[in-house]
């Protein structure tokens, strides 16, 4: 399934939602988590993920922490206080959009 175009507008929401659940994650972990949750149906490319992470960090929605793992530096992303509020708002917005989209894709026949 080619989902990259559909994903483009909602990537930030997906990232923020995952970070809401996991507290902190690193780039590779995010790509694998999405793959795992969707049984490989949705694949986030690194070419899209990293600019999104960096943008969210610059906007103050994410904070970073570096840790030493296997003798190399690993950069973990976590939601800030503003990021938490933004995540909730973005998820609600996406859910509402999906409900509306569903109505357009599967219109129910009118009762009268």
């Amino acid at each position: 399934m080619s989902s990259s175009k559909l994903l483009k507008g909602s990537l930030a929401t997906i990232v923020m939602r995952l970070l809401e659940e996991q507290e902190q994650m690193y780039g590779y972990e995010i790509t694998q988590k999405v793959k795992e949750l969707t049984a490989g149906e949705i694949k986030i490319t690194e070419g899209a993920l990293y600019p999104t992470l960096h943008k969210l960090e610059a906007e103050g929605y994410l904070t970073t922490e570096t840790k030493m793992v296997d003798n190399r530096v690993r950069k973990y992303y976590a939601l800030t206080k503003e990021g938490n509020a933004e995540a909730k708002s973005k998820v609600a917005e996406l859910e509402s959009f999906l409900v509306q989209l569903q109505k357009v894709l599967n219109p129910k026949p009118g009762l009268g």
Binding site: Y26, G27, Y28, E46, R72, V73
Partner: peptide, 11 residues
């Protein structure tokens, strides 16, 4: 550099 290095190594 560090972020990409870790990504490639983990992958």
């Amino acid at each position: 550099y560090e972020e990409l290095y870790d990504h490639i190594a983990t992958s």
